[in-house]
Computed example of a mutant assay.
Amino acid sequence: MHFLGVHPTRRGEGLGRLLYKSFFSTVASLGCRTASCVTAPVNRNSIAFHRRMGFSILDSDCMVDGVPVVLGYDGVGEDRVIFTKDLDTLLVDW
């Protein structure tokens, strides 16, 4: 997943969950078994959202405010939190 965003005025309506559900369904039908995505360590709302969606955070030697961060993931000074989700364990109605 490269980018998923919901306009701030539309957050909390379930649109992000709906977009992910559609994406997961499509890629799982094509044989994908794992979804990955990234966010900035300062984006606490995104981190919380992805955790609620059942994503796991990839372990790292570097921690920022208790969250594992991959330093320089998107270039110098562009650190990221890396998430993964096993698509084999998706529930039909989550």
Rank of each mutant, 00 (worst) to 15 (best):
G16M: 09
F49C: 08
H7S: 15
L87W: 04
G5S: 11
G77Q: 07
I82T: 11
N45V: 11
L15V: 11
C37Y: 03
G14E: 03
F3S: 11
F49Y: 05
R80H: 06
V64H: 04
V69A: 07
D59V: 05
L91Y: 04
P8L: 02
G16Q: 01
S29M: 04
L91E: 15
I47N: 01
R10Y: 11
L18S: 15
T9S: 14
C32Y: 11
L71K: 15
T39P: 00
S36E: 14
D88Y: 04
F83G: 03
G66P: 02
R51Y: 04
F49S: 03
E13D: 14
G77D: 11
C37V: 10
R33M: 12
A48Y: 03
T9R: 11
E78A: 08
F83H: 13
S22W: 07
H2L: 14
D88F: 01
P41Q: 04
N43A: 14
D86W: 00
L91W: 03
P8E: 03
T34S: 09
M63D: 02
S29Q: 13
L71M: 08
G16H: 10
A40F: 03
N45P: 12
G31F: 00
T9Q: 09
N43W: 05
G12F: 07
D79H: 15
R80P: 05
K21S: 13
Y20A: 00
G12K: 07
R51S: 08
H2V: 14
V69C: 03
F24T: 09
D61P: 10
S56C: 14
T9K: 12
V6N: 01
F24Y: 15
G54Q: 02
G54D: 02
D93E: 15
